[in-house]
Amino acid sequence: MAGHAGSKRVIYAALAGNLAIALTKFAAALFTGSSAMLSEGVHSLVDTGALLLYGMHRAARPADHTHPLGHGRELYFWSFIVALLVFALGAGVSFYEGIIHIMTPEPVVNAKVNYVVLALSFLFEGSSWLVALKEFRRQKGRQGWLEAVRRSKDPSVYTVLFEDSAALLGLMVAFAGILSAELLEIPELDGLGSIGIAIILGATAIFLARESKGLLLGEPASPEVQRKVLAIAGQDPAVQQANGILSVHIGPEEIVAGLSIEFEDHLTAPDIEACVERLEARLKEEMPQITRLFVKPQATGTWELRRRAIAEAAGED
């Protein structure tokens, strides 16, 4: 729950003031005729923190007869929609505006208005970025930045971080485009700034979509989590050997795990059932993220054959 609280805090920080910033940018674009400022207004308008909050709300619903494993992947779905929106609305509109402004250039008037709006936007976006950065650094621990993103099962924090990073870069590009267009008296440079913003948003959207796709298709629990589950299973006196584990994330803190266990030969069916109940109770206490546990009695040799078959199939892909 602490992780969800941190994620929501990051999203609320990103949403704070974004609508006001978007309206201010649109007003400045209308007043000055700047294409780059219009692109920045669109970027702020498509800020998708609200969709992430909606996804978190939907994902928190309990399991039912149509979704027996829960609704955790709703967050992953809405994260993917966020990436599509950033690409289609943010990058698409910015690129279109840039092309139009290059083909039919118009000089920027009252450029100082744009500079004031850009400075205020940078201040607010920077504050949101710092909140997201602090939370992401807390979550990543000693991992590298890209490694932490790839291994993260909670897209809400790094999505906001990358969006805010793209926003800050976009503000710099918009400033450069407007300033160069004014100083050099080449209005096409303002349109070029819009295209630069489109490239930044497009690259961000592609990266986020790639990460969301992996989560939607199903990613396993981290090696540390898998080792801990196997260690707990192996400590039970009824277990001769915990062969291996197949796991998949249904949500950031929801893991479905299947254990292959070789039980002691003398055990009866009630003994095995009691062992499984003990394992479920201990995992619920020590690893609450394991929301579903399935145990398959299996000889070590059988598990090894299955593991090799899975590894070979993954290698062919």
Results as ranks from 00 to 15, higher is better:
residue 271 D to V: 02
residue 283 L to G: 00
residue 301 G to L: 03
residue 284 K to E: 14
residue 305 L to P: 02
residue 291 T to S: 14
residue 274 A to W: 03
residue 259 L to W: 11
residue 282 R to G: 04
residue 280 E to P: 07
residue 294 F to L: 11
residue 296 K to C: 06
residue 290 I to T: 05
residue 276 V to N: 00
residue 306 R to M: 14
residue 283 L to N: 03
residue 293 L to G: 05
residue 282 R to S: 11
residue 298 Q to M: 14
residue 266 H to R: 06
residue 263 F to C: 11
residue 255 I to Q: 09
residue 266 H to T: 10
residue 287 M to V: 15
residue 293 L to Y: 09
residue 265 D to V: 11
residue 272 I to E: 13
residue 254 E to Y: 01
residue 303 W to H: 10
residue 297 P to W: 01
residue 299 A to G: 12
residue 258 G to E: 12
residue 279 L to S: 11
residue 303 W to C: 06
residue 288 P to F: 00
residue 257 A to L: 10
residue 291 T to C: 02
residue 289 Q to P: 02
residue 263 F to M: 12
residue 259 L to R: 05
residue 279 L to Q: 12
residue 259 L to A: 12
residue 263 F to P: 15
residue 267 L to Q: 11
residue 276 V to I: 11
residue 303 W to K: 04
residue 289 Q to R: 05
residue 267 L to E: 11
residue 258 G to Q: 13
residue 303 W to G: 08
residue 289 Q to Y: 01
residue 261 I to V: 15
residue 293 L to P: 15
residue 294 F to N: 09
residue 282 R to V: 15
residue 300 T to E: 12
residue 274 A to C: 12
residue 296 K to W: 03
residue 286 E to N: 08
residue 270 P to F: 04
residue 299 A to D: 13
residue 261 I to T: 13
residue 274 A to V: 11
residue 265 D to L: 05
residue 266 H to E: 15
residue 295 V to R: 04
residue 277 E to I: 06
residue 272 I to H: 02
residue 278 R to Q: 04
residue 278 R to G: 08
residue 297 P to H: 03
residue 292 R to H: 15
residue 299 A to W: 07
residue 274 A to K: 07
residue 274 A to D: 15
residue 288 P to S: 07
residue 306 R to K: 08
residue 287 M to R: 08
residue 261 I to C: 13
residue 273 E to K: 09
residue 254 E to R: 08
residue 290 I to W: 06
residue 294 F to V: 08
residue 288 P to G: 08
residue 301 G to T: 05
residue 257 A to V: 13
residue 272 I to Q: 11
residue 255 I to Y: 01
residue 262 E to W: 10
residue 270 P to I: 02
residue 285 E to T: 13
residue 262 E to K: 07
residue 272 I to F: 00
residue 258 G to R: 09
residue 268 T to H: 04
residue 263 F to A: 10
residue 296 K to F: 05
residue 270 P to Q: 12
residue 294 F to W: 07
residue 273 E to T: 12
residue 291 T to Y: 04
residue 282 R to A: 02
residue 293 L to D: 05
residue 272 I to L: 01
residue 294 F to Y: 14
residue 291 T to H: 00
residue 285 E to A: 15
residue 273 E to W: 04
residue 258 G to T: 14
residue 293 L to T: 05
residue 276 V to Y: 02
residue 283 L to M: 09
residue 289 Q to L: 10
residue 282 R to N: 07
residue 287 M to G: 09
residue 282 R to Q: 14
residue 255 I to W: 01
residue 267 L to M: 13
residue 278 R to E: 04
residue 266 H to Y: 07
residue 270 P to S: 09
residue 273 E to F: 01
residue 295 V to F: 02
residue 302 T to I: 13
residue 304 E to R: 00
residue 276 V to R: 00
residue 271 D to N: 10
residue 286 E to I: 04
residue 277 E to V: 08
residue 283 L to D: 00
residue 259 L to K: 10
residue 305 L to C: 09
residue 287 M to T: 08
residue 305 L to S: 14
residue 264 E to Y: 03
residue 260 S to W: 01
residue 260 S to F: 07
residue 272 I to Y: 02
residue 256 V to T: 14
residue 269 A to S: 13
residue 262 E to R: 06
residue 262 E to D: 15
residue 298 Q to I: 11
residue 275 C to A: 13
residue 296 K to P: 14
residue 291 T to K: 05
residue 268 T to M: 12
residue 292 R to L: 06
